[in-house]
Simulated scan of single mutants.
Amino acid sequence: MHDRWVIPDASHSLRIARPTPDLARARMFWVDALGMAELWARDADARGHALLMVGFPAARWHLEFVEDLASARSARPSDEDQLVLYLGEPPEPDLLERLTAAGGTRVPGNDYWAQWGVTVVDPDGYRLVLSHRTWDV
């Protein structure tokens, strides 16, 4: 490691955490509709925060949802708060139907993602982009 910077490599993991007012609704969207696995969950602790971690079991990243009504109310996701999944093909119509049935809303997305993917706003107001491109660095 450089003496000043952290240089991540493939062995490092990534967690993206954010508040939600409703873990059941988050589970319905991300697990039941999108198909991520529930990796771990915890009922409310002494501070009243319940947790849900979801992801793809082989991936080195996951999402953590913290049930926290006050924080979720103050969160203001913008159009650029996006989680992009590179599928390598267009999403199946039934996947889009499941996402909207689970509280998601299809939106046009910006010009780039309108061309390269489908954008769905999750029940908490964050954007999920399902790109038909692949990500090859």
Rank of each mutant, 00 (worst) to 15 (best):
F29L: 05
A58G: 14
L52W: 01
G55V: 01
F56S: 11
L69Y: 14
R73H: 15
L87Y: 05
G55W: 02
V66G: 04
S78T: 13
P93F: 07
E80F: 15
W61C: 07
E80L: 15
V54K: 01
L52I: 01
F65Q: 00
A46G: 08
R76D: 10
H49P: 09
V66H: 03
P57K: 10
W30L: 00
M36K: 04
Y86T: 08
S71A: 15
E67G: 04
R60L: 09
R76G: 10
R60N: 09
R27S: 02
S71P: 14
P91R: 00
W40N: 03
R27M: 02
R60V: 11
D68R: 07
E89M: 09
D68C: 09
G35N: 05
F29C: 05
D79K: 12
D45P: 07
R60A: 11
P91S: 03
F65V: 00
L95K: 08
S74P: 14
L52P: 02
W40K: 04
A59M: 12
S78C: 15
P57D: 13
V84T: 12
G48D: 09
A26C: 06
A41D: 00
Q82G: 13
M36F: 08
R73Y: 15
M28L: 15
R42H: 10
P91M: 02
D45Y: 05
P90R: 06
R60H: 09
W40F: 11
A70E: 14
E89L: 10
P91D: 03
L87E: 06
S71N: 15
M53E: 09
E89K: 11
A26G: 06
D32Y: 04
A41V: 00
L83N: 07
E38Y: 03
A70F: 11
L83Q: 06
P93K: 07
L52D: 02
E92N: 13
A75M: 15
A58Q: 15
A50D: 09
A44V: 03
D43R: 01
A44K: 00
S78W: 10
V54C: 02
H62D: 14
R42W: 04
A72M: 09
L63A: 02
G48S: 07
R60M: 10
E67V: 01
A70I: 13
Y86H: 08
D68G: 11
F56H: 11
A37L: 05
L95Y: 07
L51A: 05
R73C: 14
D79H: 12
A26L: 03
A37S: 09
M36N: 06
Q82W: 12
S78R: 14
G35E: 05
Y86P: 07
R27P: 02
F56W: 14
A50Q: 08
L63W: 01
A75V: 15
M36G: 06
V84R: 08
P57G: 13
A58S: 15
